[in-house]
Nucleic acid binder design. Structure first.
Length: 681
RNA sequence: GGCGAGGUAGCUCAGUUGGUCAGAGCAGUGGAAUCAUAAUCCACGUGUCGGGGGUUCAAGUCCCUCCCUCGCUACCA
């Protein structure tokens, strides 16, 4: 297969806060997995990203903390760069939009459009805060709604009554920055005529979709915009923090962030060129029509990458000899929520990357997020899921397969890759399957179905365990050493393939496995076929994933702000009194209790209901010792359909409550004075 | 209000162009095995595919309508 030249970008994170898990799921982890896969596949890849460091919110943060905007962005740029690094992101460069090369790049684009006469200058009136000498965006002006009198209305709309109006109609306007009354002042801005490009943009999107199959959600967003007809968009702003408008007689105006930030992808590549001492490097990617440019983003960014950025590039290409390539695909993801709700920094809901990685290894997070990417719709990060994926999949299925194989090889084959002898049907089958997995995973990743690809990867580990079980090498080691050797040889080769195909997802672990195997990665598509050298000396196995105990997970859950969730209480389905009356709850006394043989959680109880006796089986062995139960008065469901558990008939059910301790319950005990057989109502 | 997305097994989610599509993983129950981080493997799902109507020989899969959740709504990044 011919090597592809691939340019990959991930949305530039805004340097006004720490990145959290949601950001990773949206635009960073999928891109990194894609890029790592491409590199293993032998493709020629450049992956760039960086901090987006301009815009009003940053100046607001600076004012609030009484520091300069520069200090704000320095702080978050470094913090996020570090967090990404710890997470295992492999950007070729993590740039930033405050560097000179970015300013000059953005200005170059502006000048190009200005000189062509493409930009439209429009005058307008805007609120101006004289105290800080700044024009105010709508969201920083508050006042009384002209329609309903709400005193906290925004300058152009009232959230309370939902009406929209012209900012001149707003009564008693106040600047949210200073509380001062803003004045009404004229300003002028340059507008980019998006509408002129609409037809070509629609054609572009349709063609890309036809050739490269864009995601449905992305196409939907585009259609939404096209349906409303693209309008001129202002690309300048009255502000002093940002890229200066490169015109002599213009002061205190900067390029608006949406126009300038996307160009950061280009300046980042330029910075990479400088760092590598190859000034022309960036052109080899950005200005080669054979480049496959893939932009990874979250759904909030679709319009900028499928409409605005392409329009900017088209406008440039129209006027210049040098032509930039447009995104070939924009695999936007939906959002990751956190324990059922949106991430919210202000409400303390969620966890940021730095904090997370101080507690848990990056690979466990990469795997959990990867296995649950919001590719088709929003998904959730749940602590409990993180625990079960780590313990049940990474440790039990993958980690244990590696461990049992290595332990076996060391015990029975002196820690060397044993010889593969004559193959049985079971061996042929697994080898055949082994060859298919990298191919299948590659197809899925190429289609940006990364979640599915990860599932296929873990399935190989599952298959490895099954093969190990079915082959029973612990038996053949005594009866047929040659066959045993073949089995372990094949298991080790499965591990070799696992190390390769899992590299994009859990790179730190992959490196450990390669080290244990004393082997190097191969070319992706060969990874199921290339075999370990027989006799190769294996290193000592190490535990790849430690289990996460309940305690540490509970700790994280308990840290979350307690919110009274009205929705959850209301969501309980209502029943009528008659329906409730169908359940007969009776008071009984436990007169005998014993453990159920071969079960670690069931107890067999004899209950005295006064008029009759019942036998029931209850799953409370982890919470109570049989002898402690004798004599307790409890409440039971007396008309539950009998069922057999472990061959023992259970004629009812005792009522118990969950406790804060996982798996432990507490029986509802009844006051000693209550007579046996009484019915609850 | 408008636009968009989603409502599928206890939980988290898959389900291309309508016809083995009623699924996977987890949880649960039973069993096998013991090399291994008590880790593995096998077997077991009577789900009104949000409700109601319609098109069709045939609909989670198309149309209409209603209910619920979420996102966007342009000078916001």
């Amino acid at each position: 297969m011919a090597r592809e030249k691939v340019l990959v970008t991930s949305a530039l994170p805004y340097a006004n806060g720490n990145i959290h898990l949601g950001h990773l799921s949206g635009a960073y982890l999928p891109a990194d997995i894609y890029v790592r896969y491409k590199r293993l596949n032998g493709d020629d890849v450049v992956y760039v990203c960086g901090s987006d460091e301009h815009g009003v919110p940053i100046t607001v943060t600076a004012d609030k903390e009484k520091i300069t905007p520069k200090e704000v962005v320095d702080k978050f740029h470094e913090a996020n760069k570090k967090a990404f690094q710890n997470f295992g992101m492999t950007f070729d460069v993590y740039s930033r939009t405050s560097i000179p090369v970015h300013h000059s790049t953005a200005q170059e684009f502006f000048k190009c459009f200005y000189d062509q006469g493409l930009l439209v200058e429009k005058k307008s009136m805007q609120f101006f805060d004289e105290k800080v000498n700044k024009f105010l965006p709508d969201r920083y002006v508050e006042g009384t709604c002209p329609k309903c009198g709400n005193e906290e209305a925004r300058s152009d709309e009232c959230e309370k009554c939902g009406s929209l109006y012209d900012p001149t109609e707003l009564k008693n306007p106040k600047s949210k920055m200073t509380g001062e009354t803003p004045v009404w002042k004229e300003t002028s801005h340059w507008y980019f005529p998006l509408g002129k490009f609409q037809e070509r943009l629609e054609k572009y999107v349709n063609e890309m979709d036809a050739n490269y199959k864009w995601k449905d959600n992305v196409l939907q967003y585009c259609r939404g915009w096209f349906n409303e007809v693209l309008k001129d968009r202002a690309i300048t702003r009255d502000l002093d923090w940002g890229v200066k408008v490169p015109l002599e007689d213009v002061q205190n105006k900067v390029l608006y962030v949406w126009f300038e930030a996307v160009l950061g992808y280009i300046s980042a590549a330029k910075e990479l060129s400088e760092l590598r001492g190859e000034p022309e490097l960036w052109k080899k990617y950005w200005q080669d029509k054979y480049t496959k440019y893939i932009a990874f983003i979250g759904k909030d960014n679709v319009v900028f990458h499928t409409i605005i950025f392409p329009a900017i590039l088209m406008a440039w290409n129209d006027a210049n000899e040098t032509k930039y390539c447009l995104p070939q695909n924009v695999p936007a993801n939906e959002f990751l929520n956190f324990e059922g709700k949106k991430f919210s920094k202000s409400r303390g809901w969620g966890i940021d990357v730095r904090e997370f990685l101080e507690l848990f290894p990056a690979d466990t997070l990469r795997y959990t997020l990867g296995a649950n990417l919001p590719e088709g719709k929003d998904t959730d990060f749940f602590w409990k899921e993180f625990q079960s994926r780590t313990n049940g999949e990474l440790a039990d299925i993958l980690g244990n397969f590696v461990n049992r194989t290595f332990t076996f090889a060391h015990k029975h084959f002196e820690g060397k890759v044993p010889l593969r002898g004559t193959l049985a049907k079971i061996d042929e089958d697994i080898l055949e399957y082994l060859k298919e997995v990298p191919v299948k995973a590659a197809e899925l990743i190429e289609r940006y179905k990364i979640k599915d690809a990860i599932f296929e990867m873990m399935n190989l580990a599952r298959a490895g365990n099954k093969y190990f079980n079915d082959s029973e090498p612990w038996k053949s080691s005594k009866t047929n050493k040659e066959q045993c050797a073949s089995t372990i040889n094949i298991c080790l080769n499965i591990i070799y393939t696992l190390a390769e195909i899992f590299e994009p997802v859990i790179p730190f672990t992959s490196a450990k496995i390669f080290d244990m195997l004393n082997a190097k990665p191969t070319q992706w598509l060969n990874s199921g076929k290339t075999n370990l050298v027989e006799g190769n000396i294996l290193n000592e196995p190490q535990i790849l994933f430690a289990k996460l105990e309940d305690k540490i997970i509970e700790e994280q859950i308990n840290k979350l702000p307690q919110v009274i969730d009205l929705a959850a209480t209301e969501a309980v389905e209502e029943i009528t009194i008659d329906e409730f009356k169908r359940v007969k709850l009776k008071v009984g006394k436990i007169i005998a209790a014993e453990n159920v043989k071969k079960s670690d959680r069931l107890l067999k109880l004899q209950i005295d209901l006064g008029t009759e006796k019942r036998q029931l089986v209850a799953g409370i062995a982890k919470s109570y010792n049989p002898e402690d139960l004798i004599g307790k008065k409890i409440l039971m469901v007396a008309n539950l359909k009998p069922a057999k558990l472990f061959g023992i008939e259970s004629q009812g059910m005792v009522l118990a409550l969950d406790t804060h301790e996982e798996g432990k319950v507490r029986l509802i005990e009844i006051d000693e004075a209550i007579e046996l057989g009484k019915t609850a109502k």
